[in-house]
Design a protein around this nucleic acid. Structure first.
Lengths: 123, 123
DNA sequence: TCAAGCGCTTGACATTCTCAAGCGCTCTTT
DNA sequence: AAAGAGCGCTTGAGAATGTCAAGCGCTTGA
């Protein structure tokens, strides 16, 4: 891993952060409302707790999410976005806008008559 | 993996697409100008060719990138964004805006004196 | 009293990503 | 004319990243 000039670029670094699996999903869920841990897992849909814990840990260290322990005994935690986190609304909105416009993966993209199938390899 | 309702949501699917490693980097590079394969690898900085080939393949199938073979003999290819791809400018811009505002990772986030290293597991 | 929920963690596995090398070819440099 | 260096990829083997199932101690609602 030699230092290439890209690593000096904040945009490059941001992308690095946001492309980690589930990060954008987590932020999207948290933009709606604060959540507890398992609750958040359900809101996101599909994350396993191991990964979620790792992501929340990183996001907290990056100052995007804040964790409030409401009670230890009946364990209850609350994750919510910091100001920096809320500012990611713009990113989510942009994705949202693009999705509505171009993510019509249900309707085939071009009507290719000879193609047997568009082969949309979604998960 | 049972079907959870999220998979019906285009935003969810878009995030799924965009979070694949290097995808946003590739789009950002391609927003600047079309590129050849190795050239693109350099522009992105840090991708290995195996992954790049896989991403371009998917992005082409998704209708975001188009591939033009300019000559086979001295191999020369050109990758560029389709209309749908160019429309992702908005997403990149949003990330860009956020990065400038909040991605000041150069200044330490909290000054943790006992931590040996922030362990930013960048590539 | 008893199952269900809370917030996580651990260890074993599956998937994804990376590294190095190399194919046949052509264009530049020596 | 001979030797790189560059082009667009592909392969196989390894490293990193993400996932699964189970479970901890505890509380609440049935």
């Amino acid at each position: 891993m030699q230092a290439h000039d890209h690593s000096l670029c904040p945009v490059y670094d941001s992308i690095e952060l946001l492309q980690e699996k589930w990060v954008l999903h987590i932020i999207r869920a948290l933009l709606g409302a604060p959540h507890g841990f398992n609750e958040l897992a359900r809101a996101v849909g599909g994350v396993n707790t191991t990964t979620l814990a790792a992501r929340l840990d990183r996001l907290e260290r990056e100052g995007i999410v804040s964790k409030a322990i409401e009670s230890t005994m009946p364990p209850r935690t609350r994750y919510e976005l910091t100001d920096a986190g809320v500012a990611l609304q713009g990113v989510i909105d942009a994705i949202d806008g693009w999705a509505r416009e171009h993510m019509r993966r249900c309707q085939a993209e071009e009507f290719a008559p000879d193609e047997p199938e568009p082969a949309v390899s979604s998960h």
